[in-house]
Every structure is written in C-alpha cells, then in structure tokens.
Computed example of a mutant assay.
Amino acid sequence: MKYGIHAGLWQARWTDEITPILRVVADLGFDGVEVSLLGMTDEKADALGRAVRDHGLGVTCSDGLAPDKDITSADADVRAAGLAYLRWAIATTAKIGSRGLAGVVYAPWGVYDPANKAVRAERSAQAFAALDGDLAAHDVTLGIEAINRFETDLVNTAAEAADMARASGSTRVGALLDTFHLNIEEKDIGAAIAGAGDQLVHFHVSDNDRGVPGSGHVPWAEVADALRGIGYDKWIVAEMFVIAGNPASADLNIWRNIEPDATDAAARALDFMRKTFE
C-alpha cells in the first residue's frame, strides 16, 4: 500500500504553487502527493514533475471538467472540447510523473440534469472508450469518482462508478471511492467497496466532516476489511479540506475550521492510515 496526501490541504487557491508543499509532505513521511490539474499549465507540469522526483515522492493527479467541456452535453462541440481537455489532462498527468488521474472526470461538478441521466452516463462512457488509446500510450489509469448528491446527480455510488467504468470497455478506466462521499451515499460502506472489486483503482480517505480519518464516525474497521477483502494494494490518499476562509475551501463548502492546523492534520492522518490499513 502507498500513502499519499492531497496538496489541496494546504492550498488557499487551486493555482497556488505546489512545490513548497512537497518538502512538508516528504518530511512527514508520505509516499506521495496528489495534485489537482486545476490551474495547471504545461510549464508548471514540467517543473512540478522535476520537483516531485527531487523530493523522492510518488504523485497522483486529480481533475474535473468545466461546463464548456462537458462530455455529457447534447452539444457535440462541447463534448469534443471535453474530450480534448481530457486528452491534455492524461498527457499532463504523465508529464508530471503520475500513472493515475482521477476525479469528477465524467461531468462538470455541480451541474444537474437528472431527467437525462441515462443518456449522459452513456456519453461519458463513450468518451472514456475513445480515450483508451491515450491512456495506454501514456500508461495512465483513469478513476471515476463517486461523489455525493449535493455535488453531482450522475455518479453517486460505488456501483454507479464501477458500472460506468465497465461500460467504457477500457481496462484503463476504473473507480475512485472516497470515504467522505461513501459515508453520505452508501447504506453499507463495506459492501459498496466489495462491490467495486477489481474496478477500484484509487481510494481517498477523510472522516465524515472531511477532517482527519479516525476522528469522526466513518466505520474504519469495515473500510479496511473491505479493502483487504478485494486485495486492494494501490494508493490510499488523504483528501482533507479543513481550513475555512479561502477560495479553495469555499468551493467545497468548508465554512468553519475542521482542524486547527493543516500540517498537524496531515501527520495525524498518516499515523492513522498506517495503523488502520497495514
């Protein structure tokens, strides 16, 4: 198992420089860092890739789609723009040195159209099928993240994420599950993880308030048992958002400080992850 942490824990804005965060992550003892491609440029990607290697860290990437790049849109031009963006994101992920790209890559965050859910899901799967060659060429795996009903109407459950991955027909497309969202949407978290099975390619942890895992009421023994049960041995990344009052936190509706200090939260998270998942 490899343990990572999302750089967004320390970023006030998604465009903030990530390089200074790498030393903190390495000093804490994480195996790697997860970085968002929001605000990324080709020049930044080159520099970040070098810096990640210099710090001896692994790296994973996350991303999302803007409304004008919606691969579920009825407008073919908008879908084409989304496909082009995802091709750039895959290439950029590889440039940074990552073999994993995951997130809300199937539709724009916060855009809802439940009456057309089935056709939108089909369009997403078709787009991912078209990306199979790009994923293979760059040796990247794409993770479809199931998120809660307040952020999307398209992929809320582990089953929906796994089903969309299978519908793509690509062995390089799978599911990303996150305990924060599982805690909201699943009646049985362990069964949901087990149901994803070999479709699970990436895993995020935080507690029910997006804070330090183990500090809330997520059933962690059940989570760990389910991951062991399916033989999951890939990245487990702490994706926590704990500090209010900055633009990135406002995007995620963090209206109060969940933890008093981001670096302390990261240290406690790593300690809990090692004790729980090893």
Rank of each mutant, 00 (worst) to 15 (best):
S206T: 11
D261R: 07
A81Y: 01
F241E: 00
A127I: 09
R210L: 12
F150M: 13
L177I: 13
L101M: 07
A224N: 08
A130S: 14
P219K: 09
S206K: 01
R13E: 15
A129P: 02
G8L: 13
F277K: 05
R99C: 10
T263L: 01
A26D: 04
L182E: 03
P20H: 07
A130I: 04
M273G: 02
A136T: 13
R99W: 06
G58L: 12
T141M: 13
P114Y: 13
G245I: 09
I243G: 00
K95H: 13
A7R: 00
F128C: 07
L182Q: 09
R23W: 01
G100I: 12
A226E: 01
D163W: 04
L131D: 04
N116S: 15
G56F: 07
D153Q: 05
S62L: 12
R120F: 06
P67L: 10
I236S: 04
S36H: 07
P20C: 10
R87E: 15
F203H: 02
A115N: 09
Q126F: 02
A129T: 12
V173L: 10
L48T: 04
N253E: 14
L182K: 01
A45N: 07
D75M: 08
A196P: 01
A137H: 08
A66G: 12
G110R: 15
G216Y: 06
I90Y: 02
K187R: 14
P20I: 13
G229H: 10
M240R: 03
P114Q: 14
D31K: 10
A167P: 00
I184L: 09
R228Y: 11
A107C: 14
A269R: 00
V111S: 15
K187D: 11
I144L: 14
W14M: 13
A159H: 12
A265W: 00
A12V: 06
H181I: 02
A167V: 02
K95M: 11
G174I: 07
D68F: 10
A146T: 03
A267W: 03
E34N: 14
V218Y: 09
E151W: 08
C61Y: 01
D207L: 10
L38I: 15
S98R: 01
A244V: 05
A192I: 07
I96E: 01
G8H: 06
I243M: 15
P20R: 09
N257I: 13
N208W: 06
W88L: 03
G169W: 08
G214C: 04
H138Q: 15
K95I: 04
H55D: 03
G4T: 07
Q199T: 12
I144R: 03
N148C: 06
S215I: 01
